[in-house]
Simulated scan of single mutants.
Amino acid sequence: MSDNLQNDNVVIESPEPVDTTLPMVIYALYLASIVTGGLTALVGVVIAYVYRGKGPEWLDQHYRYQVRTFWIGLLYFCLSGVLMFVLIGFVLWLVAVVWLVIRCVKGFKGLQEKRSPENVDTWLV
C-alpha cells in the first residue's frame, strides 16, 4: 500500500532551461565573417559540428541550419569571387552578404522564440 502512495506523489520536474548562448555566438561569428573574410565563420562551423546532436530537437535544427549556412555561403561567396572577373561578381557578393544577414537574423529570432528556424533545408532564405 505504501508503494501506491509513493507512486501517487510523484513530482514531475520541468525540463532544464536550454542555454542558447552558443548558437547565438555562432550566428554572431557568421555575421562577423563579413568583415573578417570568413575566418570567424570557420570557427563557427567547427563549433556547430561539435555541438550538433547534443540538445533538444529544435536546438539541433539550429546547428544543422548553421552548418548548411556555412557550406552554402561558401559556395555563394566562391562563385561571386570567380565572377568578379566579369564584374557581375560584385553584385553577387552583395546578394550573398544580404542572404547571410537574413539567415542569421532568422536564426536569432528562432532562438529567442525557442523554436527551430524555418525552412532549414532551403538554399535561399
Results as ranks from 00 to 15, higher is better:
I88N: 03
L111Y: 02
W99Y: 01
L111R: 11
P15F: 01
D8A: 14
G73V: 04
M1Y: 03
P15L: 07
Y27R: 12
T36V: 01
Q6H: 04
E13Q: 15
V86N: 03
E113M: 06
S2P: 02
C104Q: 06
G53A: 05
G53E: 09
G89K: 08
G37W: 05
R68W: 01
L100D: 14
G107E: 11
Y63E: 04
E113D: 07
T21V: 11
S80D: 06
F85M: 12
V86K: 06
G73K: 08
L124V: 07
L5W: 01
Y30D: 00
M1A: 14
V125S: 06
S80G: 14
T20Y: 12
L124I: 05
Q61T: 04
L111T: 05
R103Q: 05
A48P: 08
Y30V: 00
V45D: 08
G89Y: 01
A32G: 08
V25T: 11
V43I: 15
F108S: 09
E113P: 02
D19I: 11
S80H: 12
P56V: 12
V45K: 06
F77M: 10
N7L: 08
G44I: 00
G37M: 06
P117E: 08
K54Q: 14
G44F: 01
F70L: 04
V82W: 14
A96K: 07
G73L: 07
L22W: 11
I72C: 13
L29S: 09
T36D: 03
K106H: 15
K106I: 08
H62Y: 00
V46I: 15
D121C: 03
Q112T: 09
F70A: 09
M1D: 10
N7P: 00
R68V: 07
G110Q: 02
V67P: 01
Q66N: 03
K109P: 00
K109I: 10
